[in-house]
Design a protein around this nucleic acid. Structure first.
Lengths: 201, 201
DNA sequence: GTCTATACGCGGATAGAC
DNA sequence: GTCTATCCGCGTATAGAC
């Protein structure tokens, strides 16, 4: 039915490992971002957290944005892994339905697992702008939507995909479900997401 | 079926009108926020836009956050109006189903209408923190969720309400539907939202 | 390759004159 | 209500020590 993609399914091996100094910085930065938000975290705070000066941090990353992006990249890699798992099924034979099932399950799990950080990742203007404009991210999103919406890139399919990803990402950080255990939240989220996609229960 | 609420349905008449100077400031600020984001808009930019100094702006609003909040308040008032319309139906006799229908229709319309500003409103950390902590906003959200989730405040109902509001708010600013006309987007959004709530087509 | 010292400009914020 | 003047912290940036 669906003709094979001209290009082989991409299998990008995530990102290159970081230097020691860089790794320490993004570790500290990620923790601070989650607590104070990106805008509320200064280079000074990051430097203090690992016991160096601002300039030392600046030497590793030329701008604050670079730190933010590097910290987000690790999360993006996990999403990429989920997409590739779903693509593997789709390109093999599992069919679009099964691929969607796997993708949604993993995205829900990811979102719940990261529910405290999620607001930092999806809510920050710096990241939004960066991700919206940078090609690699757009390519990943393209693959994600292709699985969710199928070859049919019609308005309704695209709207549905947009709603679903927004629903999952936005719901986990919603005050209304703040008191739910991770397991409970994940179960309901998954159930409703599958229903939204007309996947069999 | 549902017993009447002990308290009469609240009918808060939005917000008090602003002074001339204040109104000019938030008008200019709202335009700049939509274009550059909250974080990318400085007091200097706002001051320049209306031809005064930073200090003059400061005289009207003690902090930048106050400006952001005032600019957001107008949008919030529109949401409140939608909620009150739905509540009126519910408290009269229309029933929860009809109330939900009205509420979802109006929220979808609002979100689409504001799709360019939506990211500023829901995405900014300042607003998120403010709205999450401030009582009046929480009260409004409480009313919204009560209509969507019903008296049943169970985990699934709450998860569903959280997903729906996140889906609508997040979908309108999604790159995937950026090229859709307002009318088309609104129609699909409404259709899918109603389906998600099990409302009759 | 990693850090310290130091500086510049901008943005948020305040005090007090007109 | 608006201004001038001023303060402080932060992001940015460079030079150079280890």
């Amino acid at each position: 039915m669906t003709s094979v993609d001209p290009a082989a399914p991409p299998s990008g091996p995530a990102t290159l490992p970081l230097s020691e100094a860089k790794a320490r910085i993004i570790d500290a930065a990620a923790a601070l971002f989650a607590e104070h938000g990106v805008g509320g975290t200064s280079l000074q705070m990051i430097a203090d957290a690992i016991g160096v000066t601002k300039a030392a941090v600046y030497h590793q990353f030329k701008t604050k944005d670079e730190i933010v992006i590097a910290a987000a990249q690790a999360e993006l890699d996990r999403l990429t892994a989920a997409i590739e798992a779903a693509e593997a099924i789709m390109y093999a034979d599992g069919g679009a339905g099964r691929a969607r099932e796997v993708l949604v399950t993993r995205i829900v799990a990811l979102a719940v697992e990261r529910r405290r950080m999620e607001s930092t990742l999806t809510g920050d203007p710096v990241l939004v702008r960066y991700f919206a404009s940078h090609a690699p991210f757009r390519a990943i999103m393209e693959r994600l939507y292709r699985i969710l919406a199928g070859e049919d890139g019609g308005p309704e399919a695209r709207t549905r995909a947009a709603m679903l990803t927004a629903a999952i990402g936005g719901a986990v950080m919603h005050p209304l479900v703040a008191d739910l255990d991770d397991d409970v939240l994940r179960a309901h989220l998954l159930h409703l997401a599958r229903r939204f996609l007309d996947l069999p229960e």
